[in-house]
Design a protein around this nucleic acid. Structure first.
Lengths: 328, 328
DNA sequence: AAACATGATGGAATCGTTTCCATGAACACG
DNA sequence: CGTGTTCATGGAAACGATTCCATCATGTTT
């Protein structure tokens, strides 16, 4: 219990060399074969593990990577986090997780904490816009955005799902089924998607059918129920995330709208329960895990390079929640 | 870009005091009112934020708390993590997240990394048993187990849901509906639950009806499908987690077993989609978020005290997946 | 008034690592 | 044989905070 950790000094002493030599051997510097062998042997025998504390202080950064997501409870961000963790584990780096609740202020607070911890690399699903991120980027924090990018920060590499194509596919599918009054049920930070939605819909666009919820379940349900009640003439809805989709299913059921007879539904993000639902939900699948993995990859090889972002494909998975427009 | 962080030395210089005084003021030590005021003023003016790196090295621990869960993708652990994050945020501590995949070896690897990072406190859903944890506990790592405890480590405080009561309630409910052949579909680390299951079932227990899956979705599905095919005479099943429940619903559907007519189902852990399912699933709700929060609380006030663990209540939420035993 | 208690204060040591620099040996080349 | 080059090596200086300890001033008690 009272045994101090074995330090590099202990190893040096036991091996009969200086601490500098031990450090060199352990971090791949130059050393004569016999010294290297001896040091390595002693190190394993003493079960020496270099303390990250000392190293971090010396080189002014804590190695680890920060991960900022709106809500770890959301299946999508859970998978994204899993991808980041997988990549970080392969690189032997720890991951510091923080949630922002899609709130710019809370996000700033979390960034502050990461900075305080000496974290030099962060993967973030940004909540705030350029004003929030500009100062922190200037501190030299290597940043990669995931899932969405911050307005006015096209210089920050971002790993995104191909929303543009996803929305187009969904809209095409729905219009192809005869739908004309198509709603979009959106969440925070989906401005770009909505822009594509408007563009894809062309003359059919109806601003009243575009509603936004905040991050919470309650807010999503309120938005969905309000939409359905206010505009009973709509025949199809595109939900911008699994939380929104869940709310839409719930609200539709509450209002006795039959899916897909009265209402066709497409949900962004494929989740396991989409298949369990009745009817099973037609979705736009997003490679959440890959997004996380790739983002972590990018942030880890910070080698001065400014890599352009990555765009990952989405996929329309047709199940049973879309049908032809009901004929009045 | 090339501006060094402001250090405590800068503040001391600007305020015309020694670094010791600055440190004292900032960490609540004694100082004269006027000095305190001056130092505080200078600190805010210079936007000084103490570097965790220096502090950590000095006091040989990194403050933050480690969190080890089997799978962050699983809704239950997502909520648990959320609880830990909420508590940690309130305390201003960072959280280092690692996943174990319910694998003892991987768990040991993650513990090693935490130790290397100087993390002195960890909340864990243990995968390994006494042999794995004993050595790490001896290193002085303050540990609190969450959701389940490790065999042979009753001395480690644990925050658990009241499985015993949950299983009893579920079994009573099912037997009350007339069921006699009741299966348990279990996951990793559910030995204790199964013991209670056996006990509650008494003479009705049938070992063939107790099957285990590993952590993955595939494994869960295989276990469920195997069980249903091998023993078509069972009339009720208790799934030991949302992943198992999902698998059971899927397998039942695949085999054309109607729920609840042919098969009654109860699932451990209430998840949003349980209500969306058809029929909606009857569940034993567990306060996952609270478990995380309470565990973090315990691990944070490590004040030498050895608090006994905490047992949080579960709740039977009756929906539509259980019915009277089918009469042959 | 002398002795003593109290409290604020700053210098310096400390934590464990990396890295700069000087030293000395070995070796090659003219 | 002398000079220059390469290479392994260890001492010591960072890194930025906390904290021990000595110092000095002030106030209190006899």
């Amino acid at each position: 219990m009272n045994t101090r950790r074995t330090t590099i000094k202990d190893v040096a002493e036991a091996a009969g060399v200086g601490v500098a030599t031990v450090s060199r051997v352990l971090s791949g510097g130059s050393a004569s074969p016999e010294t290297r062998e001896r040091v390595l042997a002693v190190a394993t025998q003493l079960d020496y593990r270099p303390s990250a504390l000392g190293r971090n202080l010396r080189q002014q950064r804590s190695g680890g990577i920060g991960l900022l997501v709106p809500d770890i409870t959301d299946s999508f961000y859970g998978r994204l986090a899993d991808g980041v963790l997988a990549c970080a584990r392969a690189a032997g780096e720890p991951v510091i997780l923080g949630t922002t609740g899609d709130d710019a202020e809370r996000e700033a607070e979390q960034i502050g904490m990461l900075l305080e911890q000496g974290v030099g690399r962060v993967v973030a699903v940004p909540a705030g816009d350029a004003e929030i991120w500009a100062p922190t980027l200037r501190t030299g924090l290597t940043t990669v955005f995931a899932h969405r990018s911050a307005a006015g920060h096209d210089d920050v590499p971002a790993v995104l799902a191909d929303d543009r194509s996803g929305v187009r596919t969904a809209v095409d599918y729905l219009t192809g089924l005869g739908h004309r009054r198509i709603a979009y049920l959106g969440g925070p930070g989906q401005e770009q998607r909505v822009a594509v939605f408007r563009q894809a819909l062309g003359a059919l666009v109806d601003e009243e059918l575009i509603v936004f919820a905040r991050g919470s379940r309650d807010s999503a349900y309120a938005a969905a129920a309000g939409l359905f009640q206010h505009r009973p003439d709509l025949t199809a809805v595109l939900a911008g995330g699994n939380l929104l989709g869940e709310a839409a299913v719930l609200a539709a059921r509450e209002l006795d709208l039959r899916v897909p007879k009265d209402l066709s539904m497409i949900m962004f993000d494929d989740v396991p329960w989409a298949e369990l639902c009745s009817p099973p939900l037609t979705v736009i699948a997003q490679p959440a895990q890959d997004i996380g993995y790739r983002a972590a990859e990018l942030v880890l090889r910070e080698g001065g390079r400014r890599p352009r972002g990555v765009l990952l494909p989405t996929e329309l998975v047709v199940r049973g929640s879309c049908g032809p427009r009901r004929t009045p």
